[in-house]
Protein backbone atom coordinates (compact mmCIF):
# COMPACT_ATOMS: atom_id res chain seq x y z
CA UNK A 1 0.00 0.00 0.00
CA UNK A 2 2.76 2.42 1.02
CA UNK A 3 4.68 1.29 -2.03
CA UNK A 4 1.67 2.03 -4.22
CA UNK A 5 1.20 5.50 -2.78
CA UNK A 6 4.90 6.28 -3.17
CA UNK A 7 4.78 5.07 -6.76
CA UNK A 8 1.77 7.22 -7.56
CA UNK A 9 3.33 10.25 -5.85
CA UNK A 10 6.53 9.76 -7.85
CA UNK A 11 4.56 9.50 -11.09
CA UNK A 12 2.65 12.64 -10.17
CA UNK A 13 5.87 14.57 -9.52
CA UNK A 14 7.31 13.52 -12.89
CA UNK A 15 4.08 14.44 -14.66
CA UNK A 16 3.94 17.86 -13.02
CA UNK A 17 7.59 18.53 -13.88
CA UNK A 18 6.79 17.71 -17.49
CA UNK A 19 3.81 20.05 -17.39
CA UNK A 20 5.99 22.79 -15.89
CA UNK A 21 8.63 22.47 -18.63
CA UNK A 22 6.08 22.40 -21.45
CA UNK A 23 4.05 25.38 -20.27
CA UNK A 24 7.16 27.39 -19.48
CA UNK A 25 8.77 26.85 -22.86
CA UNK A 26 5.54 27.23 -24.84
CA UNK A 27 4.71 30.54 -23.21
CA UNK A 28 8.08 31.99 -24.08
CA UNK A 29 8.13 30.63 -27.61
CA UNK A 30 4.62 31.87 -28.34
CA UNK A 31 4.28 35.47 -29.57
CA UNK A 32 3.26 38.14 -27.07
CA UNK A 33 5.25 40.09 -24.54
CA UNK A 34 3.93 40.78 -21.02
CA UNK A 35 6.04 43.93 -20.79
CA UNK A 36 4.47 45.31 -23.95
CA UNK A 37 1.07 44.80 -22.33
CA UNK A 38 2.11 46.76 -19.22
CA UNK A 39 3.91 49.86 -20.43
CA UNK A 40 2.11 53.14 -20.78
CA UNK A 41 2.24 55.19 -23.99
CA UNK A 42 5.00 57.52 -22.73
CA UNK A 43 7.49 54.87 -21.62
CA UNK A 44 11.10 55.27 -22.71
CA UNK A 45 13.39 52.49 -23.85
CA UNK A 46 15.20 52.61 -20.50
CA UNK A 47 11.87 52.18 -18.66
CA UNK A 48 11.17 49.05 -20.69
CA UNK A 49 14.61 47.60 -20.01
CA UNK A 50 14.27 48.34 -16.32
CA UNK A 51 10.81 46.80 -16.15
CA UNK A 52 12.00 43.73 -18.02
CA UNK A 53 14.92 43.31 -15.63
CA UNK A 54 12.74 43.76 -12.57
CA UNK A 55 10.66 40.74 -13.63
CA UNK A 56 13.77 38.75 -14.51
CA UNK A 57 12.62 38.49 -18.12
CA UNK A 58 16.04 39.68 -19.36
CA UNK A 59 17.71 36.51 -18.15
CA UNK A 60 18.27 33.35 -20.19
CA UNK A 61 15.37 30.93 -20.60
CA UNK A 62 17.18 28.30 -18.55
CA UNK A 63 17.92 30.75 -15.73
CA UNK A 64 14.32 31.94 -15.67
CA UNK A 65 13.10 28.36 -15.45
CA UNK A 66 15.61 27.51 -12.73
CA UNK A 67 14.61 30.52 -10.61
CA UNK A 68 10.91 29.75 -11.06
CA UNK A 69 11.32 26.06 -10.23
CA UNK A 70 13.49 26.89 -7.22
CA UNK A 71 10.83 29.17 -5.74
CA UNK A 72 8.12 26.70 -6.70
CA UNK A 73 9.51 23.89 -4.58
CA UNK A 74 9.57 26.37 -1.68
CA UNK A 75 5.88 27.06 -2.29
CA UNK A 76 6.40 30.41 -4.01
CA UNK A 77 4.52 30.64 -7.31
CA UNK A 78 5.90 34.12 -8.08
CA UNK A 79 4.02 37.35 -8.54
CA UNK A 80 1.29 37.97 -11.08
CA UNK A 81 2.45 40.55 -13.64
CA UNK A 82 -1.00 41.93 -14.40
CA UNK A 83 -2.45 41.83 -10.87
CA UNK A 84 0.76 42.48 -8.88
CA UNK A 85 -0.28 39.94 -6.25
CA UNK A 86 1.28 36.60 -5.33
CA UNK A 87 0.16 33.87 -7.74
CA UNK A 88 -0.22 31.38 -4.88
CA UNK A 89 -2.63 33.73 -3.13
CA UNK A 90 -4.64 34.31 -6.33
CA UNK A 91 -4.91 30.58 -6.94
CA UNK A 92 -6.06 29.87 -3.39
CA UNK A 93 -8.67 32.63 -3.67
CA UNK A 94 -10.11 31.31 -6.89
CA UNK A 95 -9.72 27.54 -6.45
CA UNK A 96 -12.66 27.02 -4.03
CA UNK A 97 -15.08 28.75 -6.42
CA UNK A 98 -14.08 26.43 -9.26
CA UNK A 99 -14.13 23.34 -7.04
CA UNK A 100 -17.66 24.16 -5.89
CA UNK A 101 -18.77 24.72 -9.47
CA UNK A 102 -17.16 21.52 -10.77
CA UNK A 103 -18.39 19.32 -7.92
CA UNK A 104 -21.94 20.65 -8.25
CA UNK A 105 -21.81 20.04 -11.99
CA UNK A 106 -20.52 16.53 -11.38
CA UNK A 107 -23.31 15.79 -8.89
CA UNK A 108 -25.97 17.13 -11.25
CA UNK A 109 -24.47 15.10 -14.11
CA UNK A 110 -24.44 11.90 -12.04
CA UNK A 111 -28.04 12.35 -10.88
CA UNK A 112 -29.33 13.34 -14.32
CA UNK A 113 -27.24 10.78 -16.22
CA UNK A 114 -28.15 8.06 -13.73
CA UNK A 115 -31.82 8.92 -14.03
CA UNK A 116 -31.75 8.80 -17.82
CA UNK A 117 -29.85 5.50 -17.77
CA UNK A 118 -32.35 3.91 -15.38
CA UNK A 119 -35.37 5.11 -17.34
CA UNK A 120 -33.74 3.98 -20.58
CA UNK A 121 -33.07 0.53 -19.12
CA UNK A 122 -36.57 0.29 -17.67
CA UNK A 123 -38.13 1.14 -21.04
CA UNK A 124 -35.59 -0.75 -23.14
CA UNK A 125 -38.20 -2.98 -24.79
CA UNK A 126 -40.79 -0.24 -25.21
CA UNK A 127 -41.14 2.21 -28.09
CA UNK A 128 -40.96 5.16 -25.65
CA UNK A 129 -37.24 4.47 -25.23
CA UNK A 130 -36.90 6.57 -28.39
CA UNK A 131 -37.62 9.70 -26.35
CA UNK A 132 -34.83 8.75 -23.95
CA UNK A 133 -32.48 8.14 -26.87
CA UNK A 134 -33.36 11.56 -28.28
CA UNK A 135 -32.64 13.41 -25.05
CA UNK A 136 -29.45 11.45 -24.56
CA UNK A 137 -28.34 12.24 -28.09
CA UNK A 138 -28.93 15.97 -27.58
CA UNK A 139 -26.89 15.94 -24.38
CA UNK A 140 -24.04 14.17 -26.14
CA UNK A 141 -24.07 16.33 -29.23
CA UNK A 142 -24.13 19.83 -27.74
CA UNK A 143 -20.95 21.20 -26.10
CA UNK A 144 -20.97 23.08 -22.82
CA UNK A 145 -20.46 26.58 -24.24
CA UNK A 146 -23.48 26.18 -26.54
CA UNK A 147 -25.56 25.08 -23.58
CA UNK A 148 -24.22 28.13 -21.70
CA UNK A 149 -25.32 30.52 -24.42
CA UNK A 150 -28.68 28.78 -24.85
CA UNK A 151 -29.30 28.95 -21.11
CA UNK A 152 -28.39 32.64 -21.06
CA UNK A 153 -30.87 33.31 -23.86
CA UNK A 154 -33.71 31.28 -22.32
CA UNK A 155 -33.36 31.58 -18.54
CA UNK A 156 -31.47 34.86 -18.42
CA UNK A 157 -33.02 36.95 -21.19
CA UNK A 158 -36.31 35.53 -22.50
CA UNK A 159 -37.54 34.45 -19.06
CA UNK A 160 -35.21 36.33 -16.72
CA UNK A 161 -35.49 33.95 -13.79
CA UNK A 162 -31.80 33.42 -13.03
CA UNK A 163 -28.97 35.93 -12.54
CA UNK A 164 -26.73 36.22 -15.58
CA UNK A 165 -23.34 36.61 -13.99
CA UNK A 166 -21.24 36.52 -10.87
CA UNK A 167 -21.19 34.19 -7.90
CA UNK A 168 -23.33 36.06 -5.40
CA UNK A 169 -25.49 39.18 -5.27
CA UNK A 170 -23.01 41.98 -4.34
CA UNK A 171 -25.55 43.55 -1.97
CA UNK A 172 -25.51 40.46 0.23
CA UNK A 173 -23.00 40.22 3.08
CA UNK A 174 -19.99 38.19 1.96
CA UNK A 175 -18.05 37.85 5.17
CA UNK A 176 -17.17 34.23 4.41
CA UNK A 177 -14.28 32.66 6.29
CA UNK A 178 -13.43 30.20 3.51
CA UNK A 179 -13.68 30.32 -0.26
CA UNK A 180 -16.28 27.56 -0.28
CA UNK A 181 -19.23 29.96 -0.11
CA UNK A 182 -22.01 27.46 -0.80
CA UNK A 183 -20.69 24.86 1.59
CA UNK A 184 -20.09 27.45 4.27
CA UNK A 185 -23.53 29.01 3.83
CA UNK A 186 -25.15 25.58 4.18
CA UNK A 187 -23.07 24.61 7.20
CA UNK A 188 -23.78 27.89 8.98
CA UNK A 189 -27.47 27.55 8.05
CA UNK A 190 -27.48 30.80 6.06
CA UNK A 191 -30.04 29.49 3.60
CA UNK A 192 -30.76 32.93 2.13
CA UNK A 193 -27.12 33.13 1.04
CA UNK A 194 -27.12 29.50 -0.11
CA UNK A 195 -30.17 30.11 -2.27
CA UNK A 196 -28.60 33.15 -3.92
CA UNK A 197 -25.36 31.24 -4.50
CA UNK A 198 -27.29 28.32 -5.96
CA UNK A 199 -29.23 30.64 -8.28
CA UNK A 200 -25.98 32.13 -9.53
CA UNK A 201 -24.45 28.70 -9.98
CA UNK A 202 -27.49 27.13 -11.66
CA UNK A 203 -26.73 28.07 -15.26
CA UNK A 204 -22.97 27.46 -15.29
CA UNK A 205 -23.51 24.19 -13.42
CA UNK A 206 -26.14 23.08 -15.93
CA UNK A 207 -24.00 24.06 -18.90
CA UNK A 208 -21.13 21.98 -17.55
CA UNK A 209 -23.29 19.10 -16.32
CA UNK A 210 -25.46 18.43 -19.38
CA UNK A 211 -22.76 17.04 -21.71
CA UNK A 212 -21.29 14.93 -18.90
CA UNK A 213 -24.79 13.69 -18.01
CA UNK A 214 -25.15 12.54 -21.63
CA UNK A 215 -21.93 10.55 -21.43
CA UNK A 216 -22.75 9.03 -18.05
CA UNK A 217 -26.24 8.10 -19.28
CA UNK A 218 -24.87 6.45 -22.41
CA UNK A 219 -22.14 4.44 -20.69
CA UNK A 220 -24.26 3.48 -17.70
CA UNK A 221 -27.15 2.38 -19.91
CA UNK A 222 -24.84 0.22 -21.95
CA UNK A 223 -23.42 -1.36 -18.79
CA UNK A 224 -26.89 -1.79 -17.23
CA UNK A 225 -28.25 -3.38 -20.40
CA UNK A 226 -25.32 -5.78 -20.40
CA UNK A 227 -25.85 -6.64 -16.72
CA UNK A 228 -29.60 -7.15 -17.19
CA UNK A 229 -28.87 -10.05 -19.54
CA UNK A 230 -26.75 -11.89 -16.99
CA UNK A 231 -27.92 -15.13 -15.39
CA UNK A 232 -27.94 -13.64 -11.90
CA UNK A 233 -30.52 -11.09 -12.99
CA UNK A 234 -32.70 -13.86 -14.46
CA UNK A 235 -32.45 -15.73 -11.17
CA UNK A 236 -33.35 -12.60 -9.23
CA UNK A 237 -36.32 -12.12 -11.57
CA UNK A 238 -37.51 -15.62 -10.69
CA UNK A 239 -37.22 -14.61 -7.03
CA UNK A 240 -39.93 -12.09 -7.87
CA UNK A 241 -38.01 -8.81 -7.88
CA UNK A 242 -39.61 -5.95 -9.78
CA UNK A 243 -37.90 -4.60 -12.88
CA UNK A 244 -36.83 -1.42 -11.08
CA UNK A 245 -35.41 -3.39 -8.19
CA UNK A 246 -33.53 -5.65 -10.61
CA UNK A 247 -31.94 -2.57 -12.14
CA UNK A 248 -31.13 -0.83 -8.85
CA UNK A 249 -30.03 -3.67 -6.63
CA UNK A 250 -28.78 -6.33 -9.05
CA UNK A 251 -27.50 -4.64 -12.20
CA UNK A 252 -26.42 -1.24 -10.88
CA UNK A 253 -23.58 -2.34 -8.63
CA UNK A 254 -21.96 -4.19 -11.51
CA UNK A 255 -22.55 -1.37 -13.98
CA UNK A 256 -21.12 1.40 -11.80
CA UNK A 257 -17.51 0.24 -12.08
CA UNK A 258 -17.07 0.62 -15.84
CA UNK A 259 -19.07 3.86 -15.77
CA UNK A 260 -16.95 5.29 -12.99
CA UNK A 261 -13.69 4.83 -14.86
CA UNK A 262 -15.00 6.75 -17.84
CA UNK A 263 -16.74 9.40 -15.77
CA UNK A 264 -13.41 10.20 -14.14
CA UNK A 265 -11.78 10.88 -17.49
CA UNK A 266 -14.74 12.93 -18.63
CA UNK A 267 -14.77 14.91 -15.40
CA UNK A 268 -11.32 16.25 -16.25
CA UNK A 269 -12.83 17.52 -19.52
CA UNK A 270 -15.52 19.20 -17.45
CA UNK A 271 -12.81 21.00 -15.48
CA UNK A 272 -11.40 22.15 -18.80
CA UNK A 273 -14.88 23.36 -19.71
CA UNK A 274 -15.00 25.60 -16.64
CA UNK A 275 -12.55 27.96 -18.38
CA UNK A 276 -14.99 29.05 -21.06
CA UNK A 277 -18.15 28.65 -18.97
CA UNK A 278 -16.79 30.73 -16.07
CA UNK A 279 -15.90 33.42 -18.58
CA UNK A 280 -19.39 33.42 -20.09
CA UNK A 281 -21.02 33.79 -16.67
CA UNK A 282 -18.30 36.05 -15.18
CA UNK A 283 -17.96 33.46 -12.44
CA UNK A 284 -14.91 34.31 -10.30
CA UNK A 285 -13.06 31.01 -10.57
CA UNK A 286 -9.74 29.73 -11.88
CA UNK A 287 -10.96 29.38 -15.46
CA UNK A 288 -12.15 32.96 -15.69
CA UNK A 289 -8.82 34.14 -14.30
CA UNK A 290 -6.99 31.87 -16.76
CA UNK A 291 -8.50 33.67 -19.76
CA UNK A 292 -7.56 37.07 -18.34
CA UNK A 293 -4.06 35.79 -17.59
CA UNK A 294 -3.62 34.61 -21.17
CA UNK A 295 -4.91 37.88 -22.60
CA UNK A 296 -2.44 39.81 -20.40
CA UNK A 297 0.45 37.41 -21.13
CA UNK A 298 0.77 37.06 -17.36
CA UNK A 299 3.47 34.36 -17.46
CA UNK A 300 3.70 33.52 -13.72
CA UNK A 301 -0.06 33.38 -13.35
CA UNK A 302 -0.56 31.19 -16.43
CA UNK A 303 2.18 28.85 -15.23
CA UNK A 304 0.64 28.65 -11.79
CA UNK A 305 -2.83 28.01 -13.24
CA UNK A 306 -1.64 25.27 -15.56
CA UNK A 307 0.20 23.56 -12.73
CA UNK A 308 -2.90 23.85 -10.56
CA UNK A 309 -5.04 22.24 -13.26
CA UNK A 310 -2.37 19.54 -13.56
CA UNK A 311 -2.60 18.79 -9.84
CA UNK A 312 -6.40 18.67 -10.06
CA UNK A 313 -6.31 16.22 -12.99
CA UNK A 314 -3.83 13.96 -11.22
CA UNK A 315 -5.93 13.95 -8.05
CA UNK A 316 -9.10 13.11 -9.97
CA UNK A 317 -7.42 10.18 -11.68
CA UNK A 318 -6.15 8.96 -8.34
CA UNK A 319 -9.59 9.15 -6.75
CA UNK A 320 -11.17 7.34 -9.71
CA UNK A 321 -8.64 4.52 -9.50
CA UNK A 322 -9.44 3.96 -5.86
CA UNK A 323 -13.18 4.28 -6.42
CA UNK A 324 -13.15 1.65 -9.17
CA UNK A 325 -11.48 -0.80 -6.80
CA UNK A 326 -13.92 0.04 -4.04
CA UNK A 327 -16.85 -0.81 -6.31
CA UNK A 328 -15.50 -4.17 -7.44
CA UNK A 329 -15.29 -6.83 -4.73
CA UNK A 330 -13.14 -8.98 -7.02
CA UNK A 331 -10.41 -6.33 -7.07
CA UNK A 332 -10.78 -5.35 -3.44
CA UNK A 333 -8.90 -8.28 -1.97
CA UNK A 334 -6.54 -8.80 -4.88
Amino acid sequence: MIELVAKRAGMAAITLFGVAVVVFVLLRVAPGDPIAMMIGPGATAEDIVRLRASYGLDQSLFNQFWIWLGSLVQGDFGTSISRRVGVGQLLLERLPATIELAIMALLVAIVLGGFIAIIGTLWRRHWSVGAVDGVNGLLLAIPEFVWALALVLVLGVALPVLPLSGRINPSLPTDFKTGFYLLEALLTLRFDLALDLARHMAMPVLALALPLAGIIARVLREALGEAMMQDYVTLARVKGMSELRLILSEAMRNAVGPTLALTGVQFTFLIGGTVIVEKIFSYPGLGNMAIDAVINRDFPLIQGLVLMFGVIFILINLIVDFAVVAFNPRLRHG
Binding site: Q230, D231, Y232, V233, T234, L235, A236, V238, K239, S249, E250, R253, N254, F327, N328, P329, R330
Partner: peptide, 15 residues
Protein backbone atom coordinates in the same frame (compact mmCIF):
# COMPACT_ATOMS: atom_id res chain seq x y z
CA UNK B 1 -37.72 -21.44 -7.51
CA UNK B 2 -35.03 -22.06 -10.09
CA UNK B 3 -31.80 -23.95 -9.80
CA UNK B 4 -29.87 -22.56 -12.75
CA UNK B 5 -27.53 -24.35 -15.10
CA UNK B 6 -24.31 -22.46 -14.52
CA UNK B 7 -23.47 -21.70 -10.89
CA UNK B 8 -20.56 -19.52 -12.03
CA UNK B 9 -22.79 -16.89 -13.61
CA UNK B 10 -25.98 -17.26 -11.57
CA UNK B 11 -24.72 -15.44 -8.51
CA UNK B 12 -24.31 -11.68 -8.57
CA UNK B 13 -20.56 -10.97 -8.36
CA UNK B 14 -21.22 -7.74 -6.48
CA UNK B 15 -23.45 -9.04 -3.69
Amino acid sequence: ALIPQDPLTALNPGR
